[in-house]
């Protein structure tokens, strides 16, 4: 079983002033998806309705929002639990302050990814999309079997066209830079 991002306790040490980045919340409120983060009044609806929070000892969307508001940039972005959200959007639909909570989580994940914190499943999917257009490597057997199943041939992806369209994407450029440095 894969357990890449579950059990690590989040950092619960007392907050030091030096950890706080007061501009973080403003940065977030300018990004697509987390515009309304300042509106959170910590009611807890998101956490109490979150299916993942029910079974995870560490994942709490309300806590993540508060830490982000406080400017605890590194604690939030380095936290493994960020990757537990199932993107079910229950919180987004139920937040009384109309915050797109799931999108805030997504924005934070994007920022973590830019720093290089990405679970392996995602790396594999990106590699596969670049290679074939599909997020998973579709087994040859499946592709061949389609005919006997009465299904039309699987459309071939166009990796060249995909790579051209993705040119200049920040995340991919970061990966390239990293592999050049190594």
């Amino acid at each position: 079983m894969t357990e890449t991002a579950t059990t690590k306790e989040p950092n619960r040490e007392p907050i030091k002033a030096s950890e706080i980045d007061p501009k973080f919340k403003y940065e977030l409120s300018r990004m697509h998806g987390s515009e309304k983060i300042l509106r959170c009044f910590q009611c807890g609806t998101c956490t109490s309705d979150c299916p993942v929070a029910r079974y995870s000892e560490t994942y709490r969307p309300r806590t993540i929002i508060r830490m982000a508001q406080l400017g605890l940039r590194d604690r939030v972005l380095n936290s493994d639990t960020l990757w537990l959200c199932a993107a079910c959007f229950t919180c987004t639909d139920r937040c009384p302050q109309d915050i797109e909570v799931a999108s805030v989580i997504r924005v934070l994940r994007n920022l973590a990814a830019e720093k290089g914190c990405v679970p392996i499943v995602f790396k594999e999917q990106i590699a596969s999309v670049l290679e074939s257009g599909y997020a998973y490597k579709i087994p040859d057997l499946r592709i061949k079997k389609r005919e006997t199943q009465g299904l039309p041939p699987l459309p071939k992806g166009n990796p060249a066209s995909i790579s051209k369209s993705l040119k200049g994407v920040k995340f991919l450029e970061n990966i390239e830079k990293k592999s050049e440095q190594q």
Partner: peptide, 12 residues
């Protein structure tokens, strides 16, 4: 891919 890069998701 949205969790990793919103930009990439939009383009795809």
């Amino acid at each position: 891919l949205d969790p990793v890069s919103h930009e990439m998701m939009l383009i795809l």
